[in-house]
Design a protein around this nucleic acid. Sequence first.
DNA 1: CTGTTAGCGCTTTCAA
DNA 2: TTGAAAGCGCTAACAG
Lengths: 341, 341
Amino acid sequence: MGERAHRPTVKEVAQRAGVSPMTVSRTLSGGLNVKPDVQQRVLAAVAELGYHRNENARSIRPGHSSGLIGVAITNIANPYYSTFALGVEEEVALAGRRILLGNTSEDVTRETELVGDFLGRRVDGLIVVPAGTASDHLAHSQSQGVPVVLASRRIDGLAADSVVLADDDGAHRGTIALIDRGHTRIGYLGNSISIFTGERRHAGFVRALEERGIPLDSRLVATDQQTVDQAREAMRALLRAKNPPTAVFCANNRNAIGALKEISTQLSTGLRGAADFPEIMSFDDFELAELSPVPISVIDHDPRELGRTAARLLLDRLDGDARDAAPRAIELPVSLRVGVR
Amino acid sequence: MGERAHRPTVKEVAQRAGVSPMTVSRTLSGGLNVKPDVQQRVLAAVAELGYHRNENARSIRPGHSSGLIGVAITNIANPYYSTFALGVEEEVALAGRRILLGNTSEDVTRETELVGDFLGRRVDGLIVVPAGTASDHLAHSQSQGVPVVLASRRIDGLAADSVVLADDDGAHRGTIALIDRGHTRIGYLGNSISIFTGERRHAGFVRALEERGIPLDSRLVATDQQTVDQAREAMRALLRAKNPPTAVFCANNRNAIGALKEISTQLSTGLRGAADFPEIMSFDDFELAELSPVPISVIDHDPRELGRTAARLLLDRLDGDARDAAPRAIELPVSLRVGVR
DNA sequence: CTGTTAGCGCTTTCAA
DNA sequence: TTGAAAGCGCTAACAG
């Protein structure tokens, strides 16, 4: 297996076709100024040898690029981010490019290493869901002519293109909807306030309460759940409170899913009925939300489109006419779907 | 932004440190035979210039490799595959390598293009969830010394390492469990029989029925659903049957989720109760399975471990002592969890 | 229309 | 311990 570990080169193709390497190169680059019959011979040799141009060798030549886009994501196993990655891949593939994917696990150190590695591999650009607020590594990338697009989260002080969701607006509308449904004790489950989306969604939530003159009860607010299990535990605590919430705002799918799991578990004891549990508002739609035992509403958006948009911002800057444009900040709208169940 | 689009080279670092490029190279490769104080100067210059070794240039030198692993997946947005990808990424990163990710959308043509592109980028190896039974492009990769690991699905006639799940055994045990629970009319929702997993899971299902002397009613078998929506429609058809099944075996998460969505929709009309719907057996666990309105059991396994195993098979062949080993076929066990809900 | 030369960034000789 | 030369695979630029 893999005994004959040989990768043919231009020279060998040239020899086999009885031409010079340049003729091979020209043929493979469109065949300009190469006689048709010669092209035939070259292509035949290519096929026979199973030749593939060495893109790495090509990319070191002046003017050529690697055709690689570095993508750093915090958690590829989260459906939100994997769908995002799909969008990026699709759009980037249309431009004949490929993605180098790295998972940061919300770890800035890892993100920094990853970016360094990507630069070493001469990526044409970077699409990053930043794990924190550190931006030196990204500014550094830009300073070397490798543009950066931030997705889902922005970083203060970094002049880079970005696509994010209408976090504040969505959270605000979702919370208002809960209030309009008569709730005054509303819990909050979210990711850390130190994270861009966490901060903005929390702000939208708080703003809605203030507008409606509902006092914020900090005992009903939990903001450091990154995983479903953590969210579940936080939900358990909320439900144990002396005066538990009648509705819970969940700032992302991890938290909404954790909340539902906890409700489901408690329901299965049979001690209480579904009506005894708070209804849910989830920022992020997710599969099977409609199976919720309690009423659930969703602040919906399209992570795939988020990925496509991020890719387009980058490609425009690379190939299009946005090369020297000022940083563009896009905010994708979200839509509120009340009573998914 | 990106005005000063300059990537420093060894030469510039060398100049700045007052040494030759070779000394820089040596320093960066561990510093063997370079005086400590000279190393200091070099590293200082590297830091000041923000230099990153050009991996593409390095990789064209004899003996050097790209450190890239090509990963071709059928649908990265499917949580099963995205978790698989996470496992691959993690394991590969431990070996200092990076993944080039491509989505095939179950399209063999796209897969072939992708593999060609990967070879052009001089990947060290390939991890593929094959979209079909075509193997020429993969055999070709092997013939050029680029090993291939098949994941989740094998290809007849291709001598390559592989990790798959115990599809037949899992489906068999799941079906037997349904029969033991008293079911004799069991529906089947699956992906195409022409797909490796589809064929094997279907076979396990059929085998169980045969063993227990239950006749196979082909009107209860639907095997071409690739998406949740298709699965939903197929489920609707099953439920409309004159003599509908009392249990449905779902060969993967797409089909199980589609089935549950359909049940959920029909329940919401209030015309029938949960007891009127078949119980579910799902090959693949998935988030919120426990919210199912009908009893559900799960044939569980670990896609992340599948990814890790695929990566390890490949790395062993690249770096380890499996370089010339015969193809290794691993089958990961699955576990049956009856009555998740 | 085709080939020769030169050099991209790097590192393995080989010499000092 | 350091450097000079040479060449990896490829393709602009310049002949012819």
